[in-house]
Amino acid sequence: MKIKLKVWRQKNRDTPGQFKTYDSPELNEHMSFLEMLDVINEDLANKGEEPIAFDHDCREGICGTCSCVINGKPHGPNRGVATCQTYMRSFKDGDTIVVEPWRAKAFPIIKDLVVDRTAFDRIQHAGGYISVRTGAAPDANAILVPKKDADLAMDAAQCIGCGACVAACKNASAMLFVAAKVSHLGLLPQGQPEREKRVLAMVKQMDEEGFGACTATGSCQAVCPKEISIAFIARMNHDYGKALLKGDPHAAPGQAG
């Protein structure tokens, strides 16, 4: 099969980009989308042109590095998979495929399809952790966790931080990512001590990074390669409201009012 690739080319953050269209060499329909890009890049390199820069790492849907908006949908036409798990058999011979980077103010473009997602790291640093005693590994069942809580926490913990939720949201909102991170720790006993501090700090950082707010359109869960539910956003809204109403009980006496 052969396709036409209409792809976003941008030299660096400060240079305006534009679409360029390339004709692919002969492709195998069982190639992954990233392998297709590899083949096109090889072709471009042979012609002495600059290859298309794109993010990739594990190529098995668990690292969250790949990030292409394919024909208007992050990670391509299929549900519950990342770009690396999208195969050329999902397209037809002769198709024109439009490939764009994640579009968000908080994710500035580095080059072509590669965007800077360190905003997610900074949100994690703000509160996506628990405090534990280091030392010998504790007994696995020292703290009992109800099975249902563990399952729900695991659903949230599946988030690979790829940013497809931001890319799909009409507001470029990071709510699904932040909600998943807040919930997966907030559902477990080990996450309770910092539960309120965590949600306040992570939401504050999220706002400072310039992500939009949530309109509950559901686009994020529709494109999430791990199919994380927006129910976690409602859970975060609940936690945040409670933390906001309580205030900080450990504030200095002078500030406590």
């Binding site: 992050p74 439009v98 103010k105 799909a168 359109t217 686009s219 494109v223």
Partner: peptide, 15 residues
């Protein structure tokens, strides 16, 4: 303001 440059094609998926 959170999305200064929009997408070329497609409406918000699943909404």
């Amino acid at each position: 303001a959170a999305r200064p440059i929009g997408y070329a094609g497609g409406v918000a998926f699943g909404s």
